[in-house]
């Protein structure tokens, strides 16, 4: 990569980050809403820890994994609607005139999601720990947790980019929200996989990748260092990111040909 190309990606990333930071209407709900649900679910489902086989005494520790995924969902919306706006205003055409291509351009666009991901992860973890959640893996685990959370955020972000490039409208991107919502809700979100007693629900949740992302985060919070769970979590995030990037690159190519 030539230094000028690196510089261009850097400029693009800078814009993406600034744009994210200047839209408190995007940041605030992305942080507050998951925390609100965290509070409500912790209060409402405390009794679940009395179920035989529940892995921890603290429901807060268990459910704390969920905000990280919810935060990542907001990142799909944010990176997608931002790019859709670029398409609608013609800004993308301007980028098309620069030498930037494919993955370089797209990673520049994801910088905002990256930064927001770090902020979100830090906020959730801080609030969770202050409220009394455990972090079995210790300080190093906190680092890995933030890393994993950011990896998930960026991976989901590529799907937002793909949707924006493919459909070209902010409304279409918003329309994706229910789809992600389904993935989250049909996972082992509120109870561990073993305690999903409804057969069909258990079947769906056990093939839902979101379940394993949650389990990877939970392993750090509840067990400590479970390398198998972590590897699966990072692996799924990487796979989603790679697939999303591939799809987004090809959508970008066809959009730039068309316009």
């Amino acid at each position: 990569m030539s230094s000028s190309l690196g510089n261009q990606v850097g400029q693009l990333a800078r814009r993406s980050i600034l744009r994210t930071l200047r839209q408190p209407a995007q940041i605030v709900p992305a942080i507050v809403f998951p925390l609100f649900l965290l509070a409500v679910n912790t209060g409402g489902l405390k009794e679940a820890t009395n179920l035989p086989g529940f892995p921890t005494d603290s429901y807060l520790t268990f459910i704390l994994a969920v905000p990280f995924i919810q935060g990542a969902l907001f990142s799909v919306m944010n990176s997608g609607t931002d790019l859709a706006r670029d398409i609608e205003t013609g800004f993308l055409n301007r980028l098309a005139l620069t030498p930037l291509r494919g993955a370089a351009l797209l990673s520049g666009l994801l910088a905002g999601a990256f930064v927001l991901g770090v902020v979100q992860a830090a906020a959730y973890l801080a609030v969770g720990l202050i409220a009394g959640a455990e972090l079995a893996a210790g300080p190093a685990g906190a680092l890995v947790l933030v890393l994993l959370s950011v990896a998930i955020t960026v991976a989901f972000g590529t799907i937002g980019l793909f949707a924006a490039l493919r459909f070209g409208s902010g409304e279409a991107v918003q329309g994706l929200f229910p789809v992600f919502f389904v993935f989250l809700f049909l996972s082992a979100m509120t109870l561990p996989l073993d305690l999903l007693t409804t057969d069909w629900f258990h079947a769906i949740a056990s093939v839902n990748p979101v379940t394993y992302l949650l389990e990877a985060i939970r392993s750090l919070l509840i067990e400590g260092w479970n390398l198998g769970d972590l590897a699966l979590g990072f692996g799924i995030a990487a796979a989603i990111g790679a697939l999303g990037m591939l799809a987004a690159s090809s959508a970008l190519k066809s959009r730039l040909v068309r316009t």
């Binding site: 809700f185 049909l186 305690l195 999903l196 007693t197």
Partner: peptide, 21 residues
């Protein structure tokens, strides 16, 4: 769809809660 998902997720996914003492 939203109410249906809430229903499916709550009623299906949380069924074990019905067995809480």
């Amino acid at each position: 769809l939203f109410p249906l998902f809430f229903f499916v997720s709550f009623a299906g996914g949380l069924a074990a809660i019905g067995e809480v003492p």
